[in-house]
Design a binder for these strands. Structure first.
Lengths: 124, 124
DNA sequence: TAACAATATACCTATTGCGGAATATAGTTT
DNA sequence: AAACTATATTCCGCAATAGGTATATTGTTA
């Protein structure tokens, strides 16, 4: 019953917002910070939560760490992520996040370096 | 973000099994006990959990209490229940539950009395 | 009304999750 | 090497959850 693990990951607002953003493509943590506007430690811990449960994958990119949805996902995860996207399309929170992301990162860090604006001031 | 409440309900194995069974139609608690083969208190508490969060509705029917999915559900709940059914169709646990239910209750308690076998011996 | 049957609730305990503050780690730049 | 930047981890306290035991509630039947 892998479903339980999926739904445990799904039942936190911050994690849902992260998954929604990652559905667009890979993102480094600073992008997530910029969009979510939550404390760094909070985001980092939720990313760790998702990582240990296989919902996201991470790779280092110099100073940054780029998170993405895993390349291969189970059928169960795939359909549930699709369902989440379906719901997200109508939810103001998710839509606002997507809009912020588009403004903040017109170019996503597909394979190269992270083009993050320095967000030191927003770090706390 | 009603989604959170839905996923909180979804992230327990017993609750998922209950929702899967109720997707077939209304059921009284003794049917659920017969199929799930879990202690009465456990089932009752999970039903209460689902009830207080609006995922199921209950009506008294003489000595029995019949649970069902609510008549009107939000779009979010509807698509997520559909997604759950999609996943359940391939999961051995859910399939076995459905098979047990079909054997135990060929006639569902649609509107009338609950045709429960006396399951006193199974009560613990 | 007394016994019974079906279900719910109260109480307890252990576990888990969440958030914050402080600190650690690992790369990079000077 | 030292300072810096980005991110992770540790430690803490608190709230929520899960499961069990015992008991209560509500309706039915004798």
């Amino acid at each position: 019953m892998e479903l339980i693990r999926i739904y445990e990951c799904f039942c936190d607002r911050t994690r849902l917002r992260i998954l929604n953003l990652l559905s667009t493509g890979p993102l480094c943590v600073c992008h997530l910070q910029g969009v979510l506007a939550e404390p760094q430690v909070k985001i980092s811990k939720h990313l760790a939560y998702l990582r240990t449960r296989g919902l996201v994958a991470a790779r280092r990119e110099g100073n940054w760490i780029v998170y993405r949805l895993p390349a291969k996902v189970s059928r169960e995860l795939r359909v549930n992520l699709a369902c989440l996207q379906d719901c997200a399309a109508e939810d103001p929170v998710f839509r606002r996040d997507q809009a912020r992301l588009a403004r903040l990162a017109p170019v996503l860090p597909e394979a190269g370096a992270c083009a993050c604006p320095r967000i030191t001031s927003r770090r706390q």
